[in-house]
Simulated scan of single mutants.
Amino acid sequence: MTLNITPLNPAIGARIDGLDLTRPLGEADRDALEQALLDHQVLFFREQPLTPQQQARLAMTFGDLHIHPIYPNVPEQPEVLVLDTAVTDVRDNAIWHTDVTFLPAPAMGAVLAAKQVPAQGGDTLWASGIAAFEGLSAPIQRLLEGLTARHEFSKSFPLERFGTSPEALARWEETRRRHPPVSHPVIRIHPRSGRKALFVNDGFTTRINELSEAESTTLLAFLFNHSTRPEFTVRWQWRVNDVAFWDNRVTQHYAVDDYRPTRRVMHRATILGDAPR
């Protein structure tokens, strides 16, 4: 098939047409899609009615899949988690975050499919860590080189929201035990492109290790604000059967929580990655 790529702005995002994601990707289409992801960091597709099995197959084209420790999943396809506002508290998505950076090797990327969307609202924004890094002055770039930051599961999944029943409490405690805090570089080098990107996010990053608490708090607040400036972002207005595929290594995202009490249902397949360097 012919891949039609329409960039959405200079920093991040492209719409892809001419590809049927319900069918297995051929080698040429897979390579073209990967290159588009490297170039644009998040890709959007309209009218792609993926079943959970097709979604998992698409995501597995790019790597092994992660099974989320907290969110429910599709029973017959456990690698596909369910974000359903009628079932689960998803307010942790309404903050700028990079998925599962509490893992030693966070996700490479994710495929998100819209199954039920509100008539108004419920958009998602993505921000480019590459554009954010390149938007810093040279002295600040040098300051950040060599620094590491702590990422913690419980910052986005606090006990008071995710341990509200005996079963949920047991799952939360087990997840916290299995996922102690980890540290990653503040500046990440993309393993394929070699480009540098900011790699801190308000969802999971709690401390810059080499700084005092006051210095860390001040610098992180600046980096969180800087990395989500409008010129580094793209906003997508969902329709049913839309699909987004993003590079989790160099982006963060924010699901706008402006549609309550309307229901919103999304399916996500998360692709495992490598340890940041």
Rank of each mutant, 00 (worst) to 15 (best):
Q237S: 13
E210I: 12
S156V: 05
N225I: 01
N209S: 09
S227F: 00
L144A: 02
A132Q: 00
V234W: 11
V200T: 10
T233E: 05
R142V: 07
K196E: 02
W236R: 04
N209D: 15
F222C: 02
A168E: 14
A214Q: 12
T218S: 14
R171L: 11
Q141R: 15
V100F: 06
E173N: 09
T175W: 00
G135Y: 01
G163A: 15
L147C: 12
I95W: 00
L159T: 12
F153K: 05
A131F: 01
E174L: 13
T228E: 07
T175F: 02
I95D: 04
W96N: 09
R207V: 07
R150H: 12
F222Y: 12
T233N: 08
F162Q: 12
P191T: 11
T206D: 02
A131R: 10
I208H: 07
F224E: 13
E231R: 13
F232V: 10
T206Y: 08
V200F: 01
T218L: 07
T98M: 02
H190N: 04
S212I: 01
G129Y: 04
L198K: 10
R188V: 01
F162W: 14
E145K: 10
P191M: 05
G203L: 05
W96Q: 10
D99I: 09
I140R: 09
V234Y: 11
N225V: 00
F204A: 09
T124G: 10
A127S: 15
H151Y: 09
T218F: 04
G121R: 02
A168K: 14
T148V: 08
R150K: 14
P230N: 12
E213S: 11
G203V: 04
A113H: 14
W172H: 12
S212K: 06
Q116D: 14
V234P: 00
E213G: 03
P139T: 05
S154E: 15
T228L: 06
E231H: 10
D99H: 03
T205A: 09
H151S: 09
P191W: 07
E167Y: 03
S193M: 07
P106C: 11
N209L: 14
T101D: 08
F102E: 04
F204S: 03
E215Y: 00
F204Y: 14
F204P: 00
I130A: 01
P180S: 14
L223E: 09
V100L: 10
R207Q: 13
A110Y: 00
F199G: 11
A127Q: 08
R178I: 06
T148L: 00
D202V: 13
D123R: 03
P106D: 06
T217G: 11
A197L: 00
E231S: 13
A113I: 08
G121A: 10
E145V: 02
F204W: 09
F153C: 06
L211H: 07
R192M: 05
S212T: 15
A110D: 04
A114R: 09
E231W: 01
L219T: 08
W96T: 13
S165V: 03
E152I: 15
E160I: 13
E231G: 07
A110I: 05
R178W: 04
A197N: 07
F102T: 08
G129I: 01
S137K: 03
T205K: 04
G146D: 03
S137V: 00
T206I: 11
E210V: 09
P158M: 15
K115N: 10
H226T: 04
A132R: 02
S137L: 01
T233I: 03
S165L: 06
S183Q: 11
